[in-house]
Amino acid sequence: FEIPDDVPLPAGWEMAKTSSGQRYFLNHIDQTTTWQDPRKAMLSQM
């Protein structure tokens, strides 16, 4: 499912887009990137 862009990312995360428009996520805390939206895990725990 798609999460609306107005749902905030967890602390330390940033959303970016590739030149082709694909979204990816940067974790500044552990210096990693992922295609997986970290908000999905956050919302599934609620």
Rank of each mutant, 00 (worst) to 15 (best):
F1G: 09
F1S: 10
F1Y: 03
F1C: 15
F1V: 07
F1T: 15
F1K: 03
E2M: 06
E2G: 08
E2L: 10
E2K: 15
E2W: 08
E2D: 14
I3V: 05
I3S: 07
I3Y: 12
I3R: 01
I3T: 06
P4R: 14
P4C: 10
P4N: 15
P4K: 11
P4A: 14
P4W: 08
P4G: 15
D5A: 12
D5T: 08
D5Y: 06
D5M: 08
D5I: 08
D5C: 10
D5W: 05
D5K: 10
D6K: 12
D6A: 07
D6C: 06
D6M: 08
V7M: 14
V7T: 10
V7E: 06
V7K: 12
V7C: 11
V7A: 11
V7D: 10
P8R: 09
P8G: 09
P8Q: 05
P8V: 07
P8I: 02
L9V: 09
L9S: 04
L9M: 15
L9W: 06
L9I: 07
L9N: 01
L9C: 10
L9T: 07
L9R: 02
P10Q: 01
P10H: 00
P10C: 00
P10S: 03
P10W: 00
P10M: 00
P10V: 00
A11R: 13
A11K: 14
A11W: 04
A11N: 14
A11T: 08
G12C: 04
G12I: 01
G12M: 05
G12Q: 05
W13G: 01
W13I: 02
W13Y: 12
W13A: 04
W13H: 00
W13L: 00
W13R: 03
E14P: 00
E14M: 03
E14T: 12
E14D: 13
E14C: 06
E14S: 11
M15W: 06
M15G: 05
M15A: 12
M15D: 06
M15C: 12
M15T: 05
M15E: 15
M15P: 05
M15K: 09
A16D: 07
A16P: 00
A16T: 10
A16G: 07
A16I: 05
A16V: 08
A16H: 07
A16K: 11
A16Y: 08
K17A: 13
K17W: 10
K17C: 10
K17S: 10
T18A: 04
T18F: 04
T18C: 14
T18L: 09
T18D: 14
T18W: 03
T18H: 08
S19H: 07
S19V: 12
S19N: 11
S19W: 05
S19F: 10
S19R: 13
S19I: 13
S20W: 07
S20Y: 13
S20R: 12
S20A: 12
G21W: 00
G21D: 09
G21K: 06
G21Y: 03
G21A: 06
G21M: 08
G21H: 03
Q22D: 12
Q22C: 09
Q22E: 15
Q22G: 10
Q22Y: 04
Q22A: 13
R23I: 09
R23V: 14
R23K: 12
R23M: 09
R23W: 09
R23T: 14
R23H: 08
Y24W: 01
Y24A: 02
Y24D: 03
Y24G: 01
Y24N: 06
F25P: 02
F25E: 00
F25V: 01
F25L: 01
F25Y: 11
F25T: 03
F25C: 02
L26R: 08
L26M: 15
L26C: 05
N27F: 00
N27P: 00
N27R: 03
N27W: 00
N27E: 00
N27Y: 03
N27T: 00
H28K: 10
H28D: 03
H28G: 05
H28E: 02
H28L: 07
I29H: 15
I29Q: 07
I29C: 08
I29Y: 11
I29F: 05
I29P: 06
I29R: 12
I29K: 13
I29D: 12
D30R: 09
D30F: 15
D30Y: 15
D30S: 11
D30H: 06
D30C: 08
D30T: 13
Q31C: 11
Q31N: 08
T32I: 15
T32S: 11
T32M: 14
T32V: 12
T32K: 06
T33R: 04
T34W: 02
T34N: 03
T34K: 02
T34A: 04
T34E: 03
T34I: 00
T34L: 00
T34G: 02
T34R: 02
W35F: 15
W35N: 08
W35S: 09
W35E: 08
W35G: 05
W35I: 01
W35T: 10
Q36W: 10
Q36K: 14
Q36V: 10
Q36A: 10
Q36H: 14
Q36D: 10
Q36R: 13
Q36L: 13
Q36G: 05
Q36E: 04
D37Y: 00
D37N: 01
D37R: 01
D37C: 00
D37E: 00
D37Q: 01
D37P: 05
R39H: 01
R39V: 03
R39S: 00
R39M: 00
R39G: 02
K40D: 13
K40E: 05
K40S: 11
K40A: 08
K40R: 10
A41L: 10
A41M: 15
A41K: 14
A41D: 15
A41S: 13
A41E: 07
M42Y: 13
M42I: 12
M42H: 14
M42D: 06
L43K: 11
L43C: 12
L43P: 13
L43D: 15
L43I: 15
L43T: 10
L43W: 10
L43S: 12
L43Y: 07
L43N: 04
S44V: 09
S44K: 14
S44L: 11
S44A: 14
S44Y: 03
S44H: 11
S44P: 14
Q45W: 07
Q45K: 15
Q45C: 09
Q45H: 15
Q45M: 11
Q45T: 07
Q45N: 13
Q45F: 09
Q45A: 11
Q45E: 15
M46L: 13
M46V: 11
M46C: 01
M46R: 12
